[in-house]
Amino acid sequence: MAMLETNTSVSDEQKMLVKTVREITEKEFKPKAAELTDTGEFPFENMKVLGELGLLGISIPEEYGGSEGTVMDAVLILEEIAKGCYITAMAVLGEIGVQSKAIVAYGSEAIKQKYLPSIAKGQTTLAICITEPNTGSDAANMTTNAVDQGDHFVVNGVKTMISRADVADLFLMFTRFEGTPGHKGIGCILIDKGTPGLHIKQGFKTMGGEYLWEVVLEDCIVLKENLLVLEDGFKKLMTAFNTQRCLNASICLGLAEGAFNEALSYTKEREQFGQPIADFQGIQWMLSEMYVDIEASKALLYRAARNAGRGFPDKLEASIAKFHTNEMAIRVTNQALQLHGGYGYTKEYPVERMVRGARFGAIGGGTSQVQKNLIARELLKSKRVF
Results as ranks from 00 to 15, higher is better:
residue 64 Y to N: 05
residue 122 G to A: 07
residue 173 M to R: 03
residue 88 T to W: 09
residue 341 G to Q: 05
residue 31 P to W: 10
residue 4 L to D: 06
residue 213 W to S: 00
residue 30 K to R: 15
residue 276 P to I: 01
residue 191 I to M: 11
residue 220 C to Y: 01
residue 354 M to D: 08
residue 355 V to D: 01
residue 25 T to P: 02
residue 197 G to I: 10
residue 155 V to M: 01
residue 130 I to V: 14
residue 152 H to Q: 05
residue 26 E to M: 05
residue 179 G to M: 08
residue 176 R to H: 06
residue 29 F to I: 01
residue 188 C to G: 03
residue 295 E to P: 00
residue 361 G to L: 14
residue 128 I to D: 08
residue 173 M to Q: 11
residue 138 D to I: 13
residue 183 H to C: 10
residue 247 L to F: 14
residue 155 V to P: 00
residue 124 T to H: 01
residue 31 P to D: 13
residue 238 M to D: 05
residue 332 V to E: 04
residue 275 Q to V: 15
residue 231 E to I: 14
residue 108 S to V: 04
residue 50 L to T: 02
residue 255 L to T: 02
residue 196 P to N: 08
residue 229 V to I: 14
residue 28 E to F: 11
residue 132 E to Y: 05
residue 383 K to C: 13
residue 157 G to C: 07
residue 297 S to V: 02
residue 60 I to N: 03
residue 273 F to A: 13
residue 338 Q to I: 10
residue 221 I to P: 02
residue 293 D to A: 13
residue 285 W to Q: 11
residue 41 E to K: 14
residue 228 L to R: 00
residue 276 P to A: 03
residue 125 T to G: 00
residue 341 G to V: 05
residue 202 Q to R: 09
residue 341 G to T: 05
residue 247 L to P: 02
residue 38 D to V: 06
residue 212 L to S: 02
residue 111 I to T: 11
residue 322 K to A: 08
residue 198 L to R: 01
residue 247 L to H: 10
residue 119 I to Y: 08
residue 204 F to T: 04
residue 206 T to H: 04
residue 37 T to V: 14
residue 207 M to S: 14
residue 31 P to F: 11
residue 178 E to V: 12
residue 7 N to H: 14
residue 7 N to V: 07
residue 167 V to K: 12
residue 178 E to P: 07
residue 338 Q to C: 07
residue 67 S to P: 01
residue 153 F to V: 04
residue 39 T to A: 03
residue 315 K to G: 06
residue 126 L to E: 01
residue 313 P to H: 01
residue 50 L to V: 03
residue 345 Y to Q: 15
residue 151 D to Y: 08
residue 27 K to W: 06
residue 305 A to I: 02
residue 350 P to T: 11
residue 66 G to N: 11
residue 113 Q to S: 08
residue 308 A to V: 02
residue 320 I to V: 12
residue 161 M to F: 07
residue 280 F to D: 05
residue 170 L to M: 03
residue 156 N to H: 13
residue 261 N to K: 13
residue 300 L to N: 01
residue 275 Q to W: 12
residue 41 E to H: 10
residue 298 K to F: 04
residue 87 I to M: 15
residue 126 L to S: 02
residue 363 I to Y: 12
residue 169 D to C: 04
